[in-house]
Nucleic acid binder design. Structure first.
Lengths: 225, 225
DNA sequence: ATTCAAATGTAAACTAGCCGACAAATAGGT
DNA sequence: ACCTATTTGTCGGCTAGTTTACATTTGAAT
């Protein structure tokens, strides 16, 4: 891949903002580049060499499967995020994969070992990275306590608000979200059954709080949700 | 505090193993030291200056309270762990505190800002720290999927096995755990009601899988749990 | 245009676990 | 040794949410 292109890929990721232009140009640690279409699966754990992945375009979900075959959606990711062996340690136990949710997904990756070298040479980058992982953990913890203390209805509301905040187009209190998730996906995200999710979404629609279809979700007034 | 003492405190924490003796001696960033008795509360979020805490002796639980007053036990910690603003970012929203579970708890702490400086100057330490946080996140994720896919009974079993692994005294497959938790604590850890926890513990005892009292828990054969 | 698989809608039966309420046992303080 | 607060034990009634099962709608492919 052209050095120039690598530069642009790294440059517009939050994580590398602390680096100067010349520093970024020196990195050039990107070794992989992948395109995927809706539904494509991208294996990463227990794959060949451990890597860190940067979603560049499109949306993907991280799914894990336990011994009994239960699927859990761990995260929904897009540009600006990271996935892979974020703990910088290999772990063969976990069985996770990523799945493209939209067409035209592109992802680049670098080797864990290269990234580690880079961190050792750039302490401030290491610091940003740690903060990044810490933030991720914080979000996770928050989900966890929602799951423990809140019922499915309010988990759906928080999820929708969250989603709107991250990707929605605002017009005052009205938000339009491009909907690349099925109701089954939403159900898994908020940890409930598909039927319950359907029920709750329809209820929100009946109360005119949202307008839902397969292409978009419109939240009439996010403050009322 | 004597420099000598600080040295010993840092030296036997996993995190600082990668550093040489002379490096450790240069640190001396410990600024706080606190002793607590069973039941004492140690506030740390939204306290004065952000800190990182090192439990030195005894057991503590991290509890968080949300807007509606729901208590969730986040973690049980002991020597070798860390708590505080692990994401290295201040966060006034979260309302967490630590509570001593055993008598003679002692904790030392250093300022977040001091620690950050230290990380920037010691890239390899930054790396270990990142791995440490990453590992914590991994454990957290594991809990999360247990909560989603497993019922209370198997959550109790995994918790007991985990606890045994971390602190139990093994004699073959038999394990003795010093029990500093109430059934209510256990219930909160496995995210169920106190009554259900009591029920399940008694059921395990009736099946002769464990022997339970307030001082200790004996697991007859951990492989059968 | 037709076909077919995936996604959505709906309903009844069922159940794990919660909640409230109270009794009994235990331990720590004076 | 006594008092009191905390912890543990136990019991129905209750409910949110699951499960099973089937119908309908939608959209993409041929």
């Amino acid at each position: 891949m052209y050095e120039e292109l690598k530069y642009w890929y790294l440059r517009d990721h939050k994580l590398f903002w602390t680096l100067s232009m010349s520093q970024i140009k020196q990195l050039c640690i990107i070794v992989g580049f992948k395109k995927a279409k809706k539904g494509d699966v991208i294996y990463f754990s227990s794959s060949d060499v451990p890597r860190i992945f940067l979603p560049k375009k499109g949306n993907i979900k991280i799914v894990s499967i336990d011994e009994e075959g239960n699927e859990t959606i761990k995260e929904i990711l897009q540009k600006g995020d990271l996935f892979g062996e974020l703990s910088l340690e290999q772990d063969s136990e976990v069985n996770e994969y990523a799945k493209a949710l939209t067409d035209e997904v592109s992802i680049c990756s670098f080797l864990l070992s290269d990234f580690e070298d880079l961190l050792v040479r750039n302490p401030s980058l290491a610091l940003s990275y740690t903060k990044f992982v810490g933030l991720k953990m914080k979000r996770f913890k928050n989900n966890y306590s929602n799951l423990v203390t809140k019922d499915a209805k309010s988990r759906l509301s928080s999820f929708l608000k969250d989603w709107a905040q991250r990707e929605g187009k605002f017009e005052g209190n009205k938000v339009v979200i491009e909907n690349y998730l099925t109701q089954n996906d939403i159900a898994q995200i908020i940890c409930t059954s598909r039927q319950t999710a359907t029920l709750l979404l329809n209820e929100l629609e009946e109360r005119n709080l949202i307008y839902y279809n397969r292409r978009e979700i419109i939240i009439d007034d996010i403050s009322k949700l």
